[in-house]
Every structure is written in structure tokens, then in C-alpha cells.
Design a binder for these strands. Structure first.
Lengths: 137, 137
DNA sequence: AAGCAATATGCAACAGTATTGCAATTTAGA
DNA sequence: TCTAAATTGCAATACTGTTGCATATTGCTT
């Protein structure tokens, strides 16, 4: 729904430009994390730099978060449950990457247990990438 | 010790070239994961492509593994305890990245517990990146 | 609805990471 | 010492991402 998109932009004090509306609408419709390259293919009329800046803006506001899945290109997905904002992102992310179709999705509601670190080390955030086969592969 | 280096190359059926000897010796001496760029600075006489290929060869043989820490450049560290080989790497890696000094190190002897995945998903490997402050920062 | 200041966009240029093809060199073994 | 196979260096190229700046658009004010 385009109204979700508009509300998200309004709530975050962002101007409603063509690029932001289209990109955010698209991101909200995706089941999997998407790369800048996919956005470029989806929206050839927007400049690639504008797409980069749009992603960056959304990330700064806590609307989306990035996923580093080791593929070389950063992927992005919409943040859920309002656990992120411009004041900081959720400090715990679990992502699943299928080794066959290479799709990446967020695994929600999973708590990563305490990891014993060497003396003097203090953890601030944790990022877990689980790789395997998804339900379609 | 250079003899550890030579033994590793021999055990993996790799020719003892200048580049491999120097790079592997260097990698064995490092506490933290290193990037290709660091190797380039350390060994300006070897071509950058050769360094890439050397890293790739070591990785294929299970001598080193890569660490994607989100910095843009892949880092590499020597595999411990012989849990890796050319038949496959250890399926569980925990790495710590200091948010201040940006050094990355392997956290050994930590088992990542079972992560509940949605119906139909099967995990093959897990990669956990913990970020925080190290004992020097 | 016209004007204005702040913001966003498009374009060009550039930086860093990584890969490929190919000719020349080096290695390990006969 | 000779040779085949493996390795290296070089050139070219692709991909990801960033920066500066002029132009266009947005949202607000009048």
C-alpha cells in the first residue's frame, strides 16, 4: 500500500520525492533483502547515485538495515517492529542466506545467546549469517 | 618459523614459491585477520593479482579462511586446529571486530547454539560477527 | 498561486576491491 | 639439464560505492 510508504516518510520527516516513494514502496513489497543493483534494474530512470543516497537516507532513519552476506554487494531490507530508528539500529540481526537461490531473508524473534569473549572484550552488537537451504530449494 | 610454512605448503601439495612462502609466513605471524591491501603494502614486489591468487589458493586448501567484516575489504586469517581442508571449511565461525581499532580476530572454542529457523529451512553453516571494544580499546 | 530557502537529484569523475586472459617465467621431477 | 605443468606479471576490465557541483524539486510562507 502506498499509504504505508507515505506514512513512513512523513513519520521520519523525509520529503516525498518520486524516488523515495517508488523505492520504499518496492522495498516494503519484498520478501528478501535487495541490492542496489536490483534497484537499478527495477528503476532505470533514477540515477544510480540517487539510489545509493536514498538507501543511505532510509538506513540513517532506521527504516531499512543492511545485510552483508558476503556476496560483495550490500543488501537491504525493511526493519520490522519499530526496533530501529535514527537513534540506532537493533543491535542483533540474524539473516539466512540460501546457498542455492542466494536469497537472503531476516530471521526474526531469535535471540543470539551470550558469547563468551576473551578477557577485556566487550560486545556491542551481533550479526549472525546462517547459510543453508531455504524452503524452496 | 619458516618450517611451519614449508610443512603447510608440502602437506597441501603446493609448490614453494617466493610469494607463497612469504605470504604464508606473514599470515602465520599475525594476531588479526589481514586484508589483501595490507599484503600489498607488506610485499610491494609481488603483483597484486598474484597476492589475490595466493590468498585464493590458500583458501581453497583450507589453510586460511575469509572474514567479511563489512569494511568493504575481505580479511583473511589462518585456520586453526586442522578443522578445515580442501574438502571444506569449518561450518562455524565467530569473529570479533573492534569498533575502535577495527582489528578483527577469530574467537575460538565457541559453539553457536541451534537457531530456530522457519519450517523447511536447513542450516549448513553459521557465521557470527560480534562487534564491540577489544581489550586494548 | 507565486516566491523562496532548503533539500534532493543528475551527471561526471574518481577510488577501492576483485577478476580474467595471456605471454613469460619458475618449479618440481624425470 | 631438460621438460611439462604450474605460477607469475601485466594489461585490461567489471563492479561497488563515494564526492563535488550545478540544476531541479519540495514544502513552506506569504
Amino acid at each position: 500500500m502506498i499509504s504505508d510508504t507515505i506514512r513512513l516518510l512523513n513519520d521520519n520527516g523525509l520529503r516525498k520525492t518520486d524516488c523515495r516513494l517508488d523505492v520504499l514502496d518496492f522495498l516494503l513489497s519484498q520478501e528478501h533483502a535487495v541490492t542496489h543493483g536490483q534497484l537499478e534494474a527495477e528503476f532505470p530512470d533514477f540515477d544510480r547515485v540517487t539510489l545509493y543516497r536514498t538507501l543511505s537516507t532510509f538506513e540513517d532513519k532506521g527504516i531499512i538495515h543492511d545485510v552483508k552476506d558476503g556476496s560483495g554487494a550490500t543488501k537491504y531490507a525493511v526493519c520490522k517492529h519499530g526496533s530501529c530508528s535514527e537513534h540506532g539500529h537493533d543491535d542483533e540481526h540474524v539473516h539466512f542466506k540460501c546457498i542455492k537461490c542466494e536469497q537472503v531473508s531476516c530471521v526474526d524473534n531469535v535471540h543470539i545467546p551470550h558469547i563468551p569473549l576473551p578477557e577485556g572484550f566487550r560486545a556491542k552488537s551481533k550479526n549472525l549469517l546462517v547459510e543453508g537451504l531455504c524452503n524452496n530449494c
